[in-house]
Design a protein around this nucleic acid. Structure first.
Lengths: 148, 148
DNA sequence: TTTTTATTTAGAGTTAACTCTAACTCTATC
DNA sequence: GATAGAGTTAGAGTTAACTCTAAATAAAAA
């Protein structure tokens, strides 16, 4: 099967502009064109787009994705580079999740604080509520640094 | 206490350029200047910088942070807007963490696959290993979409 | 066959958040 | 007083990843 750029737009949700941009950046090195220059995407190209989406979601930049694709096309001699890429990415994702957990706790504290503040109509009174003071103390090393 | 921009650079890790940029964008509306135009940051300003860092870490754009600061300075009449901001942010962070969990599983599969591929020296052989095939089937609805 | 819709290219424009430059002034130390 | 270092401004430049424009050609529909 082969697909026009319009069909790929529908299948992937990417814009035609973006698809041409990806191609220009070397992310789709195998897209064929017919005699009159119109792109005909293959199922293989579609599978690459799925992989590209995954790598993008994991935080890779376009040039890093291009590097991965180049390694893939070089075959088994680049297996260890590709392994490193995924190891690094896993470690970065772990850090990112840990970071988000910390931020989440702070935002949740603020949400509870403001829920109480809206209830009593005053931020300072809410901040002095026993449960919230306790929570703040538990969450922050220097609680006063978080009073804004 | 008051601090020069250089002292704030050391305390926060932000560059002097960035601090002036934040001020221009309305994130530090209370920074004082001495008679000859040199900035003198207060402990209050430093507390705002801590809060700004937290909001930035949670994914807020600078213009949204400025909005929050404006609401804060307007006092208790904006409590419900601020509550909404933190509710929305908490929901967005929850989605982001869920998204990262999905991505993490895919990247972990790739890491295991390439670890095995490096061990046997061939990607296709590794991909056919029983445990990896099983894992792939478990993780992906259309496993073939993830073969790149 | 005519009209409409889809696709092509090269290249310009956008956005966010910095990041840097130039030219200048102020402050501290020798 | 000379000099080095820190700070000032306005405004230009950077980067990533799009996003759009214009002018043209190709394909599909009426």
């Amino acid at each position: 099967m082969s697909y026009s750029i319009g069909e790929i737009v529908k299948k992937t949700g990417l814009s035609a502009h973006t698809l041409r941009y990806y191609e220009k950046e070397g992310l789709l090195p195998f897209v064929k064109k017919n005699a009159s220059g119109v792109r005909a995407y293959s199922d293989e190209d579609l599978r690459w787009l799925t992989m590209i989406e995954c790598l993008k979601d994991s935080g890779l930049q376009i040039k890093e994705i291009r590097q991965y694709i180049e390694w893939f096309n070089e075959g088994d001699s680049t297996l260890s580079q590709r392994l490193s890429l995924f190891e690094n990415r896993r470690k970065i994702l772990e850090k990112e999740m840990a970071r988000l957990t910390v931020v989440m706790n702070k935002i949740r504290y603020k949400e509870l604080l403001y829920r109480e503040a809206v209830r009593v109509g005053n931020l300072d009174i809410a901040a002095n509520e026993r449960r919230l003071k306790h929570l703040k103390k538990k969450l922050f090393e220097s609680p006063d640094d978080f009073d804004k």
